[in-house]
Design a protein around this nucleic acid. Structure first.
Length: 613
DNA sequence: CCCCCCCC
């Protein structure tokens, strides 16, 4: 299949002319800096006549490359670009085409070949390059946007609407505003002005260390092409802190450009800005809807349970319950901290604990069940559950005026009293059993076979409970569970407490084989969970074992072939140099039939795509 | 020039 590329577009663009939405072919890509997770790519692009290797993708388009959506030979429509000038002392200035947006017209695999026989574009020989005979849609032709505007009524005060970067930058159109896209910022060229929206501004923070002390605040800046973090120190804090407001537009120039430390900044940019005494910040009075507002990319709360600990997510939910503010001292830094845990829920019927810190913890009011939207929250893992914690860089919005918030609030207000949520966090009411697996699934997917313990839930039937050594005599000390040594003198010795007692307490440690149609598994169940399973106290089990063999046997017969829901902990344990997977149940409950049905329905829905009511 | 992001 052959495609019409916009022949001549590269020469026009690279010599400062305008081409509207050229159709070009991607012939290769190369990572620019490999030591950085926020990857920027240089690409080789062709218009069928010329090849241009001085082209790069704005970083927000990197995912298209990584996902395989954009591959070699792909034919694309460049819907937005700039030709940025990079100053170069020895060889003269060089133009780089920065692709700000594109649409894939045909996937590379389908195109399957290089179109035409393009030659490398050489800016120094541009006059000798043959001009393509085929006409291409170029700047000389009226732009559809401009034509439209001619027909619009012109009021004396009206200013031309934003018409893309082509006209906004000095490169393509010297007659209009001189601003540069964030995507073109690099340490090699510092004579720029960006027009940006401040999407978030941090509080002022002070530091004091061996190198000195000071204060700073940072802000996240976005424009159509990308995003970048900027930080102001000391004097610049006094100069700019009050003037900079979230959601407002500014012209910013003369900053220091540094490599961003990806450890501390999750913005999609390899660079960050530091304000200097030269830095200029000019508020832009007029709203420009072309510059994006704070963008959330909400993940369903149900995805948090499988999210990697440490990952950064945007999410939105309704505050169902709000805990009190708790003071604590950070172990590592000895810092005094205040935190508040709240539980948020969304339409996936998932409940997640969200931890707020400092001022945000103190100022939060949860009693009216506000909608809480978070950008850049951190997933953390505790006790087998997942929760989310706010970072200093996170943005928290309470009852934001966005459609999703209104929808969620409406949904929540219509919930019935008995609505049940699946909590993925360990500290909340229900405790976390992690994912639901069939026994065979858990075994096949090697749950718990890694470094760390893993937690999962299952519905299973008790196949067998081993009666031998199911109960033992333990130290009577409340928190000690050590098996005592019967001295046969009426005294019981605990080697852990290093004491003799004249009494003991019975404790259960059951070996139970549980199974479903997919497989079975021997698990260990301790005290409370074991009492829950057997329906009798450890004390009774111990007493009947000694006094009444028949009734003792009944205890086990009564639960055999009965179904339960288990919350299990699976972990590799080494014993006598042999490593094997151990599973234990930390929670055993009679099946909740409603919950069971809900879960099955949602699985059917997920597997079949059919809405089941 | 910061770079802490905490706790059970």
């Amino acid at each position: 299949m052959s495609y019409e590329l916009t022949k001549g577009a590269i020469q026009t663009i690279m010599t400062g002319g305008e081409v509207v939405c050229p159709v070009l072919q991607i012939l290769g890509s190369k990572e620019i800096s490999s030591n950085n997770p926020s990857k920027r790519y240089r690409i080789l692009i062709s218009d069928g006549v010329h090849l241009n290797s001085y082209a790069m993708l704005a970083s927000h388009l990197t995912p298209m490359l990584l996902s395989g959506e954009l591959v070699e030979n792909s034919v694309v429509k460049i819907t937005n670009h700039v030709a940025s000038i990079v100053k170069n002392a020895d060889k003269g200035d060089k133009r780089i085409m920065v692709i700000l947006d594109l649409e894939v017209i045909m996937h590379g695999a389908q195109v399957g070949m290089k179109i035409g026989n393009p030659v490398q574009f050489d800016p120094n020989q541009q006059s000798q390059q043959p001009i393509p005979s085929q006409p291409a849609p170029q700047a000389s032709q009226p732009k559809p946007q401009l034509q439209q505007r001619i027909n619009e009524p012109v009021t004396p005060k009206s200013k031309p609407a934003f018409n893309g970067y082509q006209n906004e930058t000095i490169y393509n159109s010297p007659k209009t505003t001189k601003t540069h896209p964030i995507a073109s910022i690099s340490p090699y060229q510092n004579n720029w002005t960006i027009k940006v929206r401040v999407t978030s501004k941090s509080q002022v923070r002070t530091w004091s260390n061996a190198k000195g002390e000071g204060k700073l605040f940072s802000m996240d800046l976005v424009d159509e092409s990308g995003e970048i973090r900027a930080t102001a120190f000391k004097d610049q804090v006094d100069k700019f802190y009050d003037m900079i407001e979230e959601d407002k537009l500014y012209y910013i120039s003369k900053c220091q450009v540094k490599m961003a430390n990806k450890k501390f900044c999750t913005l999609n940019n390899n660079y960050e800005l530091s304000f200097t005494s030269e830095t200029q910040v000019i508020p832009c009075v007029e709203e420009d809807t072309a510059i994006p507002k704070l963008q959330f990319n909400f993940a369903s709360l149900s995805t948090i349970q499988d999210a990697e600990a440490g990952s950064i997510l945007d999410f939105i939910g309704v505050c169902k319950t709000s805990g009190d503010v708790v003071s604590l001292t950070a172990r590592t830094t000895n810092r005094e901290l205040k935190k508040r845990d709240i539980t948020i829920v969304d339409r996936s019927l998932t409940a997640v604990t969200l931890t707020l810190w400092g001022n945000q913890a103190e100022e939060f009011r949860g009693d009216t069940h506000p909608v809480v939207a978070v950008k850049g929250g951190k997933v953390s893992e505790f006790g087998g559950g997942k929760s989310v914690s706010l970072l200093a860089s996170s943005v928290l919005q309470v009852n934001p005026d966005i459609p999703e918030a209104h929808r969620l609030k409406g949904w929540f207000d219509d919930l019935t009293e008995d609505a049940k949520f699946n909590s993925v966090s360990s500290r909340s009411e229900s405790g976390s059993g992690g994912k639901w697996y069939l026994i065979g699934e858990a075994v096949a997917s090697k749950v718990g076979c890694g470094e760390k313990a893993e937690y999962f839930s299952t519905y299973a039937t008790v196949m067998h409970v081993r009666q031998e050594r199911c109960v033992y005599k333990a130290c009577p000390t409340p928190d000690c569970q050590k098996k005592v040594i019967d001295q046969n003198t009426g005294q019981y010795k605990c080697e852990k407490c290093n004491r003799e007692f004249d009494s003991f307490k019975y404790r259960l440690m059951l070996s139970v084989d549980i199974g479903d149609f997919s497989g079975h598994q021997w698990i260990t169940i301790f005290q409370e969970a074991a009492e829950e399973l057997l329906g009798v106290s450890a004390e009774t089990v111990g007493r009947l074992q000694e006094e009444n063999t028949s009734q003792f046997g009944d205890i086990f017969r009564n639960v055999t072939l009965q179904p339960f829901q288990f919350k299990l902990r699976a972990k590799m344990e080494t014993y006598n140099d042999e490593s094997r997977l151990k599973m234990s149940a930390f929670s055993v409950k009679k099946p909740d039939v409603n919950d069971r049905c809900r879960r099955l329905l949602s699985e059917i829905r997920e597997l079949s795509g059919i809405e089941v009511r």
